[in-house]
Amino acid sequence: MQKTIKVDKQHVEKRIIDWKKRVSDHYSTIELWLTGSDYYIKRGSKLKMYEELMSEFNVRATNIETADIYKDNKIVLALKPKGLWMVGANGRIDLLSTKGNYMLVDFAEQFESPYWKLFNGDKKNGVEFTKRSFFQLLNK
């Protein structure tokens, strides 16, 4: 039986903490994947996060980390968390590059281990986000 979740200020705050952790862990995973390659990741400027549920439950705006992937001291890919409360997903991170735009969508249930899928520009046919799919994207 599906459990009922009470949405209140505490719940919203808990989900924001979880989202920030998932994003940060994700950057750490990428950092690990890039070790020994020509690329490196640098956590960049912070983005303001203030979504509708936060406003509804009087939760203060907060900041969330972005990250950039560099090659030869030039940014080749920017990772920008787009939002936590997405229809049918548990958060989305946009991947922007000069060669094309992609998005990472977490299909896991709330507070569960993330299951990231990578979508290309037409937002269809997502593939599991793995070291291999990530390097395929970088080497395009």
Binding site: D94, L96, T98, G100, N101, G121, D122, K123
Partner: peptide
């Protein structure tokens, strides 16, 4: 509608990343 949405999104995303590369926040 999906095609138009993607065209607009990709166009703006491309300008957005250019602005990021140049530090035009």
């Amino acid at each position: 509608l999906g095609k138009i949405y993607n065209e607009i999104d990709n166009k703006y995303a491309s300008i957005e990343v250019q602005a990021r590369l140049r530090g035009h926040h």
